[in-house]
Amino acid sequence: MSAWLKDETTLRTGAAQHHGVDIFALLRDQSGPQAAQVTAAGAAWLAGAAPYPRSTLAHWEERPKAPGVLPCGSAFDVVNVPALFGRRMLEQLWAEGPGSGPVATHRGRMLLFAAPGTAQRLPSLLAWEEWGTSGSGGGGDSGKQRGAVPPVLCHGTGDAVTVPPLTCVPSESGPRWVVAPDTRSPWLPGPDVLLWACVRVSRSSSSPGAAHTIFPRADQGANVYDVTRRR
């Protein structure tokens, strides 16, 4: 499972010798205040989603502070939601659920990396949940006990997303990691887990007493991904 902060131990796994790219040394040598940041093992996992992982790592070595573009559908899918709703989903996933995979923010949106196949299944599950709640005919109160789920964009096979730079500092704007990849085999939530989080947030949004947030106030200058294609 990915961690909120970088795990220095994953930077010493010998991945640099395997790939022959100095990006791992660059990540090792980062110092000073950092936002959630990719580790060497996390960079290797991200690069594995590209058709040519070695070329991707070489590009990141030359431009470690530039965003990258990776295809969805093989190593991961991406679920794209409004930033505030996404933050509430993360609160549920980390406080009461199994946690999350990597997560990034940019331009008022949040991207949750999910298991391959999620982009195909989650929209139908959300549609079923909305129908099952509002169409249950048992009086009008059921709709008042949950808020509406905002439009959810799901990116899978045939789509690509812009991922944040491997290295960044909290003061920088643009795409940023909230939960950075830190392992070669990160746990990724499936459609059932993300459906659960969406439903929990929508039901709690209309509650008079809001749950205490584990996040600081939203940073209006940074939040999720430019997407080349949308479903």
Rank of each mutant, 00 (worst) to 15 (best):
R28K: 12
A41L: 13
Q120N: 01
A114K: 08
G42Q: 01
A35N: 11
R63A: 12
S55C: 00
S124D: 10
P116R: 01
A44H: 06
Y52K: 05
P82A: 12
A41P: 00
G139P: 04
P71G: 06
L126Y: 08
T133I: 15
V78A: 15
F24W: 03
L70K: 03
P64A: 04
R54F: 08
F76D: 09
A104L: 09
S124R: 06
S100V: 11
L93C: 13
S100M: 08
L125F: 09
P33N: 05
M89Q: 07
G73P: 13
T118F: 11
A127L: 13
T133A: 13
P67W: 11
G68N: 04
H106F: 14
L126S: 07
S124C: 00
L27E: 00
G108A: 11
L70H: 03
P98S: 08
F76W: 15
R107L: 15
G68H: 01
G138V: 08
L57K: 00
A47S: 12
A43K: 01
A36R: 03
Q92W: 09
A95L: 15
R121Q: 15
G73D: 12
T56H: 04
G137A: 10
L90N: 06
W60P: 00
G117W: 09
R63P: 00
A41M: 10
G86L: 05
A75G: 15
V38Y: 06
D29I: 02
V79C: 05
T133N: 10
S124L: 09
G32M: 04
S31P: 02
A25P: 00
L93S: 10
